[in-house]
Simulated assay, not measured.
Amino acid sequence: MPSPIPATRLLPKDMFPCLDIGTCSSPLTKHPVGTHLQVPVQRLHGKTASRLWSTVIYWKEVRALLPVGSGGFGSVYKAQYLGETVALKRVKKSTKNKLASRQSFWAELNAAHLRHPNVVRVIAATTCVPPDFGDEGSIGTVLMEFVGDENLQQIISDGAQPLGEDRWLRYAADIARGLRFLHAHCVVHLDIKPANVLLSSGDVCKIADFGCSLKLDRGCEVSAISPRVSHVGGTYTHRAPELLKGQALSPAADVYSFGITLWQLMTREQPYTGDRQHVLYAVVAHNLRPSVRDHPVFRSERGPACRSALARCWSAEGRCRPAADELLPLLETLRAPR
């Protein structure tokens, strides 16, 4: 089943605070009741721990929570942890859909065991919060590396910042590398969009916010969406037609979203205007896509190559879209002749 934790185990009986009141554990590994989950402290640049991320958070080491942003299922804070800057995400309860908000928390951990320069790194996660950090509306907390204060949507919207060919191609290549890595490990993100791509101080893109993600069955074969996996969705402007229709999903859904994101990098515009329901219907029924006619990039010498690449990425049929490992060669075809 394409879920990090089956829905029947979202609140398992063996979820309990550790004996050390400074730490709390999440039920990602079975362990007998009454024992302490032994996970070494993971220094960010210190000694190597026995695993890539921790199921305990040493709350006494958390300092200075500063709000950074919020979304449908959570709020993100900038904090200090073990002497380093981190991002702390609290996944909140949804009064309208409690199951979806719980699944969103577990989905955040789908890529926790993976490490790649273009994917935000998870440091620790827990479902237990001590009283002095308490938030009655919170389901769980995820500690991640702090990438920076900007995302791609902000860069696109900020007309004062240049976004020439070399820069948008480099950003697109970063996203493509991240997707290639995720798909190779059978993780589909399902909410690729500029706002979910963070920029580091070194101007490197990192894919963030895995709250809609799924871990596919072994072999990355297409998996049908279970009625109990209710958090699948993402942002409607970037959502693949097969997801809008409630059909089976595959990594090709991320490639569709990548195509919409690539168009935004090229044009610095929003994909659609008008009523949400009209857009949803038109994408499915009339093959509506962002315009590839009016912007200067499509009237230039490389315009035909840009239109062709986008058409492949956002094809209505997932099987007609390029795989993630084909995206980098595809981007090379978009470079203007020198």
Results as ranks from 00 to 15, higher is better:
Asp325Tyr: 08
Val86Ile: 15
Val56Met: 09
Val229Pro: 00
Gly159Ala: 14
Ile21Lys: 10
Phe73Thr: 03
His36Val: 15
Arg51Lys: 09
Gly274Ile: 08
Arg302Ser: 15
Glu269Ile: 04
Ile57Thr: 01
Thr29Cys: 04
Ser308Trp: 05
Gln154Pro: 00
Val91Met: 04
His189Ile: 07
Ala111Lys: 01
Arg307Tyr: 03
Phe258Ala: 04
Ala323Trp: 09
Val120Glu: 01
Phe298Lys: 09
Arg121Glu: 06
Phe298Tyr: 15
Gly22Gln: 12
Ser104Asn: 11
Leu88Tyr: 00
Asp135Tyr: 08
Thr261Met: 14
Ala324Phe: 11
Leu262Tyr: 11
Gly259Arg: 08
Asn196Ser: 04
Tyr171Arg: 04
Cys313Phe: 04
Pro162Ser: 15
Gly233Thr: 08
Arg180Val: 04
Val187Gln: 05
Thr127Val: 11
Leu280Arg: 06
Pro4Trp: 09
Ala160Thr: 15
Met15Val: 14
Lys92Asn: 09
Val86Tyr: 00
Ser26Val: 12
Ala208Arg: 00
Asp174Tyr: 02
Leu65Phe: 03
Ile57Tyr: 01
Leu327Gly: 05
Thr35Ala: 08
Ser70Gln: 11
Leu169Asn: 08
His278Trp: 09
Ile139His: 04
Ser250Trp: 07
Ser50Trp: 10
Val76Cys: 10
Thr29Ile: 07
Tyr236Asp: 06
Ser26Asp: 13
Arg9Asn: 08
Cys320Gln: 14
Pro251Trp: 13
Leu52Pro: 00
Val232Thr: 02
Leu169Glu: 10
Lys98Asn: 02
